[in-house]
């Protein structure tokens, strides 16, 4: 299990890059595309192997792009900007499909349902997860994060700022992470809150379910730790430390053996899940690494594992994962 740098593009955006996501290969397009979003208010698309620009930058993502998610079919993607709009667009043409918002709440992280039937968004200060259907783009649910038992009353009101969401690969569980470290798990079928996952006390900015074990959730937190939870059984089953600063992004490899993390300590780390240990540290970025993303399997000739990372240093990097 290792990473090997393939290509980096400096100045991929004019400003700090905050989001990256792979749009999977689609019927009309044989290869996946890497999407990146930045403070420069653009979303750009890149070819999967040489990181050549695939289309001119799509503008209008006002105040900067916070989060990106691609629909599993690879045709559309959603970008969240600091102006609290979710702009759903066609990956290839850049044409707008829908613009969503959930006033008065902000929107932060977004994720499509693994089957693509719904879009979940972290509802920021509303302390909830918002869901839309992907056909008519109508809101279908708002799942509030209950206050954990015995928690002290939160005077500032900023505690339950929801930052991140994740669907389990079977679509049965939905989890969200907040500024105060609270992680809430929902039954995504019955739209019911299940329980909290304990252990973090700082912002959980990124989380992802294991593709091989639909109960296992990996979380990255500002406490610079990575936690491994059994989201179903409510148990912390692993913790890994090594980053010198916040863990900003986390993704799990398609084979489910490794997780990659990006941190404000300017590094990308690869972790062996079974050994619960860091196996590699990439230091090619010179500023916070806001996004790491493994390329989804599928498409023409893409046996090889690929990891992409995007950073505040305006660069994106592509690695071979093997």
């Amino acid at each position: 299990m290792k990473l090997a740098g393939l290509k980096s593009v400096d100045g991929a955006h004019e400003e700090s890059i905050w989001a990256a996501a792979w749009a999977p290969a689609a019927d009309h397009r044989p290869t996946a595309l890497l999407l990146t979003g930045a403070l420069d208010e653009t979303v750009r698309a890149w070819r999967p192997d040489d990181l050549a620009a695939a289309s001119p930058p799509a503008r209008g993502h006002a105040l900067g792009v916070l989060s990106l998610a691609a629909h599993p079919a690879g045709v559309i993607a959603a970008a969240v900007s600091l102006d609290s709009y979710i702009r759903v667009f066609d990956v290839d043409s850049g044409a707008s499909v829908a613009t969503l918002d959930a006033p008065p709440s902000e929107v932060w992280g977004v994720q499509f349902h693994p089957k693509g039937v719904a879009l979940a968004a972290a509802g920021g200060g509303s302390g909830s997860v918002k869901l839309w259907d992907t056909e008519k783009w109508q809101p279908i649910a708002s799942l509030p994060v209950p206050r954990p038992e015995g928690a002290r009353p939160d005077k500032t009101g900023s505690g339950k700022f929801v930052l991140s969401v994740a669907w389990s690969p079977d679509g049965k569980l939905l989890a969200c992470g907040s500024m105060d470290g609270t992680i809430a798990v929902y039954d995504a079928v019955r739209m019911k809150f299940l329980h909290h996952l304990e252990g973090h006390h700082m912002p959980v900015r990124s989380m992802v379910f294991s593709p091989v074990d639909p109960h296992v959730l990996f979380t990255g937190c500002d406490d610079s730790h990575i936690h491994i939870y059994d989201a179903k059984e409510k148990g912390l089953i692993g913790a890994m430390s090594g980053h010198a600063s916040w863990v900003l992004s986390i993704d799990v490899s398609p084979d489910g053996m490794a997780v990659a993390t990006g941190s404000s300590d300017r590094t990308v780390r690869l972790w062996d899940i079974n050994a619960r240990a860091s196996v590699q540290t990439m230091s090619n970025h010179s500023d916070q690494v806001w996004a790491v993303a493994f390329r989804p399997p599928g498409g023409e000739g893409v046996r090889a594992g690929r990891l992409a990372s995007a950073s505040d240093d305006k660069s994106i990097s592509l690695y071979d994962y093997s």
């Binding site: 900067g64 916070l66 600091l82 200060g125 700022f161 930052l163």
Partner: peptide, 12 residues
């Protein structure tokens, strides 16, 4: 300021 908001989203 936008960077700051990105880091501390709950700071209104």
């Amino acid at each position: 300021l936008l960077r700051a908001i990105h880091l501390a989203p709950s700071n209104y």
